[in-house]
Every structure is written in structure tokens, then in C-alpha cells.
Write a protein that binds this DNA or RNA. Structure first.
Lengths: 76, 76
DNA sequence: TAAAATATTATCGTAAAACGATAAATAATT
DNA sequence: AATTATTTATCGTTTTACGATAATATTTTA
């Protein structure tokens, strides 16, 4: 099991691209890409706040605790 | 609206105390208290992983985007 | 298929924050 | 009252976000 951050789905639902969302929440596209593709190891609540606001969704829509498909895992 | 981390409810459901959970996820009670009472400004996915594992729950059960009751908010 | 737009990856530097260790204070139990 | 559980605070170290930037890759469009 592992925690994953996935913006893909919600972004698709809201029909919003990386550039547009990045500008909206005031973060560089480069850094947003990291969050989008599950490369982040932590997240600030302020950033999560901006994302949830912009995508009009809940943290649970973005962060999930799932069975790790690949070798991905963030255990202690 | 603001992001809040609330462990209270899930801990109550699981009938687990702060000391026990702290030991289980290998974090000091002092630091866990911070997470428990919405004092944290960020969280590591590894820590969230441990919590979800120990409480057998989803991040969404713990982290929520809610209407800020008090003056609490983590905007940009 | 060439150009343009979009997205990913990487590096460097700075600032923010987690988290441990620890101690002290407060609250809850017994 | 005594014990246990929880909260709060401070200090130091380490981790990581995130900006800035550039280069690369991918996708879209003319």
C-alpha cells in the first residue's frame, strides 16, 4: 500500500490543463507537474488548499491510499 | 474554506490513544499531537502512509477541505 | 511534417516545515 | 493525590517544497 497524489483525473474532469491550473494556483508548471505525477514526497496544506479550491474537489479526490501497483511505496 | 487535518474522529473510531498510535507509527507523541489538532502546515506522504495504515483509513478520512468555522485558513 | 503549444525532467538555491529530542505545563483517569 | 495521557513549546537537523530556469520530450495543430 502507498499514498499517491493524482491530479490527472480531477484535471480531466474539470477540463483544465497544466499551464492553466498552474497559473490559477500560482505555482510553476514544473512544480505542478511533480505533484500531478506522484513525484512529491510531501505537500503543504496551503498548496492543497489552492488545488482543492481551483478544482472544486476534496483532498480525498486527489490523495489516496492504494495498493501499490508497481514498486511505488512511501513507507517509513 | 480551509484544509484541515483531523485525526480525532478516526482515532476514536479505532479506539486508539495518542501514545499507542504514536508508538505504532513511530513518531513522537508531541509531533503526533500537532498533526492531530490541525497545527501542521504540511505533511509527508510517508507519515500519511503510516497513519492510514495504522488507522486503516483513507487520507480523505483525515484531511478535508471545509468551510472554515473559525478564523482558521491556509490560503496562499 | 513543421511549428507551436503543452508537459516533463533536471539542477540550483532559498525558505519553509517536518520531525526528533526534550522539558514543562495542562488535562484527564484512577 | 498520584498516575497517566495530552498539549505546548523550544532547539537543532534534515527533509522537502517551491521558485527560477533551461532543456527535453510529448502532444496538438496548422
Amino acid at each position: 500500500m502507498a499514498i499517491i497524489i493524482q491530479l490527472d483525473v480531477m484535471m480531466a474532469k474539470r477540463k483544465i490543463g497544466l499551464m492553466e491550473l498552474a497559473e490559477k494556483i500560482n505555482i510553476t508548471p514544473a512544480n505542478l507537474s511533480i505533484l500531478k505525477n506522484n513525484k512529491a514526497k510531501a505537500i503543504r496544506l496551503s498548496t492543497l488548499d489552492e488545488i482543492c479550491k481551483a478544482l472544486n474537489c476534496q483532498p480525498g479526490d486527489i490523495i489516496e491510499y492504494v495498493e501499490d501497483i508497481d514498486g511505488k511505496q512511501n513507507e517509513a
